[in-house]
Simulated scan of single mutants.
Amino acid sequence: MISWLPHVTHLLINELEARSLAGEPDPRRAVRALVGLLPPGGTAVVKLGACGNKECHVPAPTVRVIDTVGADDTFNAAYLQPRLAGQNLCTALQHGVQVASRAISTSPRSFVPAGRVAR
């Protein structure tokens, strides 16, 4: 079931998915197990919501949630944009968290983090 992991550069999953794939009840142990299966230079991001923790701790801000549909996809796209532009892990995680938090807390939905102007 995890034979595809050696081909993954950016593993972007939630806590339940990480625990299930690794067969580990603890998300920190699960991500360590999964990272060991990625190719050299691969990155694993396990989304823990406001409880985010790791080498780069990026907690989600407290927002009034309106609609969570598409939140994972929004985070993934917002995370990958700076990574593909050569930005570091923490910058990409911060951008993903900011954009996804803004998206789930606005109606009509906005993908521009608060305080920034759309280009």
Rank of each mutant, 00 (worst) to 15 (best):
A114F: 14
T74P: 02
L93R: 03
P40C: 04
S107W: 15
L34K: 04
T62F: 13
P82K: 07
G70T: 02
A100T: 02
L16W: 14
A114H: 14
I2H: 13
E15C: 10
K54H: 08
E55G: 06
V69Y: 15
R19N: 13
P27R: 06
G86Q: 07
A30Q: 04
P6T: 06
P25H: 10
N76C: 14
L34G: 09
H10P: 01
A78K: 03
G115T: 06
L37M: 13
G41N: 00
H7K: 12
A33M: 04
L80H: 06
M1N: 07
C51W: 15
L5F: 07
P39G: 15
I104W: 08
D73S: 08
A77G: 13
R83H: 02
R116M: 12
A50K: 09
K47Y: 08
G49F: 05
Y79G: 00
R119N: 11
Q98A: 15
M1E: 09
L12P: 00
G23A: 10
A92V: 03
A44I: 04
V63T: 10
A77R: 01
A71D: 06
L5Q: 04
G70R: 06
E55V: 04
L21A: 09
L80D: 02
V8F: 14
T43K: 11
I2C: 12
A77P: 03
H7L: 12
Q98E: 14
P113F: 11
L93F: 08
A71N: 05
S107G: 06
P108A: 05
P6L: 11
V58T: 11
L21S: 02
E24F: 10
E55W: 03
R64G: 07
C56K: 00
R19G: 03
H95Q: 13
T9D: 15
N14T: 01
A100V: 01
T68Y: 14
I104A: 05
T43H: 14
H57E: 10
L38N: 06
N53L: 07
N76L: 04
G86T: 02
N14I: 01
L80W: 05
